[in-house]
Design a protein around this nucleic acid. Structure first.
Length: 125
DNA sequence: CCTCCCCCGCGTCAGCCCAT
DNA sequence: ATGGGCTGACGCGGGGGAGG
């Protein structure tokens, strides 16, 4: 079953965006940092711009224009959502590999600490 | 097999944020 | 103020493993 179609006010598009190496600093504070605002220019394939608004006349034409705008909006949002998910997965992968590196580093430091403790501890006898 | 459950990806909506 | 991009949240459907 599909959700009822509801009024919509927003739309999407997106462009190929690479995750920057230094993505840990968010421009907007608590915002997820895998998001990198990129210039967006490309239109999804198959999108055809309709007649200019000035050329609209009848209610039917207005309705068709509204429908066309909605479909365009949905198409752009669809693509934006895909791209957003791709970036998020990449970001998570990046975090996971960082965790792996830090775990190895932490283990080494613990070992080093134990060694130093052995060296520096006073003899008991 | 069949059923159940979990996971994943998708499409859509709502709301936030930024640019104009 | 408005338009438009980005993303969290939601619900759906499909794939696949586990248990009967």
């Amino acid at each position: 079953m599909q959700k009822p179609i509801m009024a919509v006010t927003r739309d999407e598009t997106d462009e190929e965006t690479e995750l920057a190496p230094s993505h840990m600093a968010a421009a907007t504070g608590d915002m997820p940092t895998y998001q990198i605002r990129a210039p967006t220019t490309a239109l999804p394939q198959g999108v055809v711009m309709a007649a200019s608004p000035g050329s609209l006349h009848s209610p039917q034409q207005l309705a068709e224009e509204a429908t066309r705008k909605r479909e365009l909006r949905l198409m752009k949002n669809r693509e934006a959502a895909k791209e957003c998910r791709r970036r998020k997965k990449e970001y998570v992968k990046c975090l996971e590999s960082r965790v792996a590196v830090l775990e190895v580093q932490n283990k080494k430091l613990i070992e080093e600490l134990e060694t130093l403790k052995d060296i520096c501890s006073p003899k008991t006898d």
